[in-house]
């Protein structure tokens, strides 16, 4: 029996309207994410991967389609939280205060002892206990991203959304964090949906890879990665899947680009 999906995305469409231009980003995107799955979204650059993730996270509204499994507002239990490419930590709060940020809001109504318990647990999980009271600007890029992951996990979301979370990191830190994500998934039974532009990262982490077509994006293929963990990027089977994935993602080089692409990345 197939378990009930944590997240069901059905027929999502989104068109951006600029000054005199309209730019269809997502045409008809549908896929499911099962419990404890790590699903990566890949596609040609500018195809609307981040937009899709932002719609699932409730930061943007779709023109059509439905998202089932995560509620856009309220109800701390069935929710999606996001880790951005830049950690987007609050620089005026310490590491610990950043992690508990979501828990102290009225929407979560968390009793203080539960807040304390979770922060201790999360600091241990991301190995940043000694830095609990440090301001974010004293941390390295990898450490900041760990804090962002802990902050997103603090409210125990039903799904963790990650938007190219490691793309600004050097290759060693990146691999370290990828392993950590794997470990966190196993320890906390977290379901993860990650946008990445790195085929190796997708094959290294994902149970399945959702490949989007060029804009306006549709799901062109869903690629299962059947390899056991821990995966070895030098393994011939790993390389074969990675190469296949790279070919599938590559778009035509001369595709038409919209003049204005609205985005909230500031």
């Amino acid at each position: 029996m197939i378990p009930k999906p944590v997240l069901s995305v059905t027929g999502i469409a989104k068109t951006f309207h600029g000054e005199g231009t309209s730019c269809p980003a997502l045409a008809d995107v549908s896929f499911d994410v099962g419990p404890r799955e790590i699903v990566c979204i890949m596609g040609p650059s500018g195809c609307g991967k981040s937009t899709l993730l932002r719609i699932i996270g409730g930061l943007e509204i779709a023109d059509a389609g439905s998202i089932q499994g995560v509620s856009g507002s309220g109800e701390g239990t069935a929710s999606a939280t996001m880790v951005f490419q830049d950690s987007a930590l609050f620089p005026w709060l310490s590491v610990e205060e950043n992690i508990v940020y979501g828990l102290r809001l009225a929407a979560q109504k968390m009793p203080e002892e539960e807040v304390r318990r979770r922060v201790t647990e999360l600091l241990e999980l991301i190995h940043l206990g000694p830095f609990a009271h440090s301001p974010p600007h004293e941390l390295s890029g990898g450490m900041k991203q760990r804090v962002a992951v802990a902050r997103a996990l603090a409210i125990r979301p039903s799904i963790l959304l990650m938007d190219e979370p490691f793309s600004a990191l050097d290759i060693f830190t990146r691999r370290e964090l990828e392993d950590e994500i794997q470990r966190i998934r196993n320890e906390l039974e977290t379901t993860i949906l990650m946008v990445t532009h790195n085929p190796e990262e997708a094959v290294y982490l994902a149970d399945r890879i959702v490949i989007l077509s060029e804009r306006p994006a549709m799901v062109s293929e869903i690629l299962p990665v059947g390899l056991p963990h821990p995966r070895n990027p030098a393994d011939p089977e790993f390389i074969r899947i990675r190469e296949r994935l790279t070919l599938m993602v590559q778009g035509r080089p001369d595709r038409e680009m919209c003049k204005t692409i609205p985005s909230a990345s500031k």
Binding site: G57, G58, L59, S73, G74, G76, S79, A80, T81, M82, F84, D86, A88, F90, W92, L93, Y101, G102, L105, A106, A107, Q108, R151, A152, I155, A264, S265, K266
Partner: peptide, 29 residues
């Protein structure tokens, strides 16, 4: 103030007064 900070607050379903108190005011300070 960086839009991202506001989005983080929204992601945790902060109310408008909460956004003003926990993000806008400290960010503008």
């Amino acid at each position: 103030i960086r839009i991202r900070w506001i989005e983080v607050a929204e992601m945790f379903h902060a109310t408008t007064p909460e956004k003003l108190r926990t993000v806008v005011f400290p960010g503008a300070l």
